[in-house]
Design a protein around this nucleic acid. Structure first.
Lengths: 192, 192
DNA sequence: GGGTCAACCAAGCAAGCGCTAGTGTAAATC
DNA sequence: GATTTACACTAGCGCTTGCTTGGTTGACCC
C-alpha cells in the first residue's frame, strides 16, 4: 500500500475522483465507478488510497489548499486599499471556481460526509481561508466602506459567493471580475 | 398501496423523514432507519410511499410550499414600500428556517438527488418562490433603493440567505428580524 | 355479522456495496 | 543477478441495500 503520499499519480486520481463526486455525490459514487473513471480495476484503487474516505479527504484538501494559495497571491498583488482588497478576494474566490470547480463543490457539499478525524484536520485549512476573508472585511468596516455587524456581514458575503457554484456559468458572458465588481458595488453602494 | 395522497399520517411521516435526511443525508438514510424513526417496520413504509424517491419529493414539496405560503402572507401584510417589502421577504425566508428548517435544508442540499420527473414538477414550485423575490428586487431597483444587475443582485441575496442554514442558530441572540434588518441595511447602505 | 380497507408485519430476494487476499510484472535499486 | 518497489490484476467475502411478497389486525359500514 502506498497511502498518504502525494505522488503526481495520486494527484491526478484525486482530480478524477472530484469530478465523479460532483456528478454523483460522494455516497452514490462507488469504488467501482471511481476505478473505471481512473482506468484501473476497483482493487487497484486501494493501492493509492487507504479507503474511500481518504479519497474524499484528498479531494477537499486539494481544493481548499488551492483556494488559499490563490487568495493569498491575490492579496499580495493588489492595491492596499480596503476596496481593492475586498475585490481581489471576491475575484480570487470566483477564479478558483473556474480553475478547480469540482474540488470546491465537493468541499462545500460533501463536507459532512467526512469522518471526524479528517474533518478536524481539514477544518484548520478552511479556517485559515475564512480568516483571510474576515481580515479583509474588518478593514473595510474600519475604513467605513461597508457597515454593519462584522460576523453577519462576512457570512452574508461568503453565502453570496459560495452560492455562485449553483448558478455561475464560466462559459457565460460574465467574467469572475465582473461578478466581483458587482458584489463589491452592491455591499458598498457605489456604481459598478 | 396508498401512494400520493396527503393523509395526516403521511404528513407526519414526511416530517420525520426530513429530520433524518438532514441528520444523515438522503443517500445514507436507509429505509430501515426511516421506518425505525417512524415506529414501523421497513416493509410498512411502502404502504405510504411508492419508493424512497417519493419520500424525498414529499419532503421537498412540503418545505417549498410552506415557504411560498409564508412569503405571500408576509408580502400581503407589510407596508407597500420597496424597503418594507424587501425586509418582509428576508424575514419570511428566515422564519421558514425556524418553523420548518429540516424540510428546507433538504430542499437545498438534496435537490440533486431527485429524479428528473420529480425535479420537473418541483422546480415549478421553486420558480414561483424565486419569482416573488425577483419582483421585490425589481421594485427596489426601480425605486433606486439598491443598484446593479437584476440577475446578479437577486442571486447574491438568495445566496446570502440560503447560506444562513449553515450557521444560523435559532437559539442564539439574533432573531430572524435582526438578520433581515442587517441584510437589507447591507445592500441598501443605510444604518441598521 | 359479513365485507371492506388502511395500516402494519415477518421474511427474504437480488443486486450492489466497500474492501481484502493473493498474484503477476516491469522498472528501479542494490 | 538478486531483491525490492510500484502498480496493476482476479476473485470473492461478508454485509447492506431498496424493495417485494403474502398475510394479519382492528376499526368501521351496511
Amino acid at each position: 500500500m502506498n497511502v498518504m503520499n502525494d505522488s503526481p499519480r495520486r494527484k491526478e486520481l484525486t482530480r478524477q475522483a472530484a469530478q465523479l463526486f460532483v456528478q454523483e455525490g460522494f455516497d452514490r459514487t462507488t469504488v467501482r465507478m471511481l476505478a473505471q473513471e481512473m482506468g484501473i480495476k476497483s482493487g487497484s484503487l486501494f493501492h493509492h488510497f487507504r479507503d474511500k474516505q481518504e479519497i474524499l479527504a484528498a479531494v477537499i484538501e486539494a481544493g481548499t489548499q488551492n483556494a488559499l494559495v490563490i487568495a493569498r497571491a491575490a492579496l499580495e498583488s493588489c492595491d492596499h486599499t480596503p476596496e481593492a482588497r475586498l475585490q481581489a478576494m471576491a475575484r480570487a474566490h470566483l477564479e478558483t471556481l473556474l480553475t478547480d470547480r469540482n474540488a470546491h463543490v465537493v468541499a462545500l457539499y460533501e463536507w459532512r460526509r467526512l469522518e471526524p478525524e479528517a474533518r478536524d484536520h481539514l477544518s484548520h485549512l478552511r479556517d485559515a481561508y475564512e480568516a483571510l476573508w474576515e481580515a479583509v472585511i474588518d478593514e473595510a468596516l474600519e475604513a467605513g466602506l461597508i457597515h454593519g455587524d462584522r460576523f453577519l456581514v462576512s457570512r452574508f458575503v461568503m453565502g453570496a459567493l459560495n452560492w455562485t457554484v449553483r448558478w455561475y456559468d464560466p462559459a457565460g458572458p460574465r467574467s469572475p471580475d465582473d461578478l466581483a465588481h458587482e458584489l463589491v458595488a452592491m455591499i458598498t453602494q457605489r456604481p459598478a
